[in-house]
Design a binder for these strands. Structure first.
Lengths: 201, 201
DNA sequence: CAGATCCTGTACCGATCGGTACAGTAACGC
DNA sequence: GCGTTACTGTACCGATCGGTACAGGATCTG
């Protein structure tokens, strides 16, 4: 569904190799930027000739889309899990933050590429991406709306509250790294506390 | 100081023309990305030949640095104003948020370029940028530390609290636009409320 | 008016851009 | 063993990359 390249008629480990290329290339893009990285660089990083590389990726932009799709798949799956789990609005916001920051830690390069290079997507790939991104943001806003309706949260502009929640969590891709100072769980708990209870004494 | 290109020995309105080029080019970079934008595109946007353009900008990267410097000058000036004004930690955080979001609205393209393309800076320009960015982030953290010391804010990890504050406000460059749904003042007030008091009822 | 200085377009540079064509090799089904 | 298909490196494409050289025009200073 999120896949542009078809798997049909491919060898047994075509898909596996493709995934490996996507992961490796995410690191290269995260380092040098999408436009700043040449095909030759990708070939070197993947230890492949141009012919072989193109056999797996189709085009440079398709490779970028594969990286962003991979992250968005995880994010939207996290949203579904949280919604399915139920609970109060506060509990679900807490859980969604933990899911999201977990993805940031597990895919630091992919997330960096997603957040920095999504404007390079064009045509259908761009609209698809925006649709899925909007779905995520709407889910957060909806959670807040429900919290307000249930009198669990105070009356606020839900869109603005969602944007502040998203800002806090999105920004983490810049400093939250695997093996770093904080765990995703810890940061998520702290952020939930700040978002819900504030920092005032 | 933040200027690499020297003004010495230039004509009367060399500096003015240079600033106009910086502003125009910020829009082009915001649209197509730094690496994604060619010199030819910049020439067209500025209605200048290559010779004329290079007479003002020195190099493509210097142009990028000029854009980021312009924003950082404003941001650090805002920090100084807020520190000079005094007041409680909460008041100063509120004021700093308003200053920052005001810059986001006044320089939407420049801020976009800054936050998206700063990794393209190299050498001294990169270290300079990181130094100034760090100064800003430290100021926020210091404000929070003081708030905790004064028992105005509850005991929290000040670094993590600062990162959440920065995330909320940095993220605004994606959706806060001049003439848009909200004013900078309004968003700043709302964000301060969320950061200080939370969203819980 | 002379001379210097600032400004600007044109032509051009070697390098690299993303992408394709294709021949050759390896692995597989039969 | 044969034919087919999957895979991969090399050579090459036109276009564009960022940047420079330079001559002539414009403008200012005396």
């Amino acid at each position: 569904m999120a896949e542009t390249a078809t798997t049909a008629g491919r060898g047994a480990n075509w898909e596996a190799r493709r995934l490996a290329i996507i992961d490796t290339s995410a690191g290269v893009f995260a380092q040098g930027g999408y436009h700043g990285t040449g095909i030759a660089e990708l070939c070197e990083a993947n230890e492949l000739g141009k012919g072989a590389l193109y056999h797996y990726i189709g085009s440079k932009e398709e490779l970028l889309a594969a990286i962003t799709d991979l992250v968005m798949d995880e994010v939207l799956a996290g949203v579904d899990r949280v919604i399915a789990a139920g609970g109060s609005a506060a509990e679900r916001l807490r859980a969604l933050g933990a899911e999201y920051l977990d993805i940031v830690v597990r895919y630091p390069d992919h997330v960096w590429v997603l957040l920095h290079e999504f404007p390079a997507l064009t045509g259908d790939r761009a609209t698809d991406f925006h649709k899925r991104r909007h779905a995520f943001e709407s889910a957060v806003e909806q959670l807040i709306r429900e919290g307000i309706a249930a009198r669990e949260l105070r009356k606020t502009d839900p869109r603005l509250a969602a944007l502040s929640w998203l800002g806090m969590h999105n920004h983490a891709y810049l400093w939250l790294k695997p093996g770093g100072r904080w765990s995703a769980k810890h940061v998520a708990a702290e952020f939930a506390r700040i978002f819900l209870d504030g920092t005032s004494r």
